[in-house]
């Protein structure tokens, strides 16, 4: 008889995992079947419009607006977060006021406001007050077309949310880092740029990935001010051919594709800013930075 002490055991059975998995699969399949067999849905319209030029152009607008808004929002958010952590009370109040205002009113309301800015201020003049110096002047609707109004609205709103994410990231960096930087003669802005923010990025990127996906979907709200993004394109088509559900499926499909693709750069960024924080050879990173990473 083999008296080896290797552990050869019958694995524990998990019958409920199999049963619940079976139920979930059955429900999912029956839903897909219901969609595909529904006579009320004209599937040929879905496939016909999936690659319609208007849809594809709308998608392009959605991507551009999303990227531009997230760029502006991230820069503003970093500025707001630093202001909120400043020891200058005026900067703290300004940042807090901005964040409270733009978080406290609905995004849809802000979009409509910027879209209809021309009704409140028909003419815009940019110059030095109380002098005749004028840099720019004209009709508001010319200076701020719908797409610019949409970008302003989405960027400012997003900046307010992201500011808190950036601030949390900055606060997560060990205080000893700033002391070490100070002792080397670094200024506070240099310390923020080279020492604190790169470390804060690790904490900032995952929730910012969330915000990016949220932004991508929120661009659909720009339909109310007639910006020609993906949802506007699909609803313009369905307004003519009355195939609302089909075109919702078309735009829904593309939104899903775009949000999935976004995960790729996020993972690359997480690796980039995770450098030096990996747990190596049994020696762990400083306690403050330890993450449950297998």
């Amino acid at each position: 008889m083999d008296l080896s002490d290797d552990v050869v055991a019958v694995p524990l059975r998990h019958p409920w995992r199999w049963i619940s998995g079976g139920i979930a699969t059955a429900l999912l399949l029956s839903f897909i079947w219901a969609v595909f067999s529904a006579t009320s849905i004209q599937h040929d319209i879905v496939t016909k419009f999936l690659f319609d030029p208007r849809i594809l152009i709308g998608m392009g607008v959605t991507v551009v607006v999303t990227v531009v808004c997230m760029f502006i929002a991230t820069v503003l958010a970093t500025l707001l977060a630093v202001m909120k952590l400043s020891d200058n009370p005026l900067q703290r109040w300004l940042a807090t006021g901005f964040i409270e205002f733009f978080r406290g009113t609905p995004l849809l309301l802000q979009i409509v406001f910027w879209g209809y800015l021309g009704i409140i201020f028909p003419h815009l003049v940019l110059g030095v007050p109380y002098t005749d110096i004028v840099f720019l002047s004209g009709k508001t609707s010319d200076l701020i077309p719908a797409i610019v109004a949409g970008i302003i609205a989405l960027s400012l709103n997003e900046a307010a949310y992201s500011a808190e994410i950036v601030r949390a990231g900055i606060l997560a960096v060990d205080g000893g880092q700033v002391e070490a930087a100070k002792s080397l003669g670094m200024s506070s802005s240099y310390t923020m740029r080279r020492i604190v923010l790169p470390q804060a990025m690790r904490v900032i990127i995952p929730p910012m990935g969330n915000e990016f996906i949220g932004m991508l979907k929120n661009t659909s709200l720009l339909q109310v001010i007639a910006v020609a993004e993906l949802y506007t394109a699909s609803s313009t088509i369905s307004a003519a051919n009355l195939a609302q559900i089909e075109l919702l499926m078309v735009s829904g499909f593309w939104y899903l594709i775009m949000t999935t693709v976004l995960g790729v750069p996020q993972r690359a960024l997480e690796r980039r800013y995770g450098r030096g924080f990996e747990v190596v050879g049994g020696r762990s990173a400083p306690r403050a930075f330890k993450v449950g990473k297998r």
Binding site: G176, E179, S183, G185, I195, Q199, R275, G276, P286
Partner: peptide, 22 residues
């Protein structure tokens, strides 16, 4: 003050190396 600190080196109990740099 930063200028004054440049000529004074400091070594900390918990090292405080910048973890994101080699």
């Amino acid at each position: 003050i930063a200028k004054q600190r440049q000529s004074i080196g400091m070594v900390f109990q918990r090292f405080n190396l910048f973890p994101h740099m080699t």
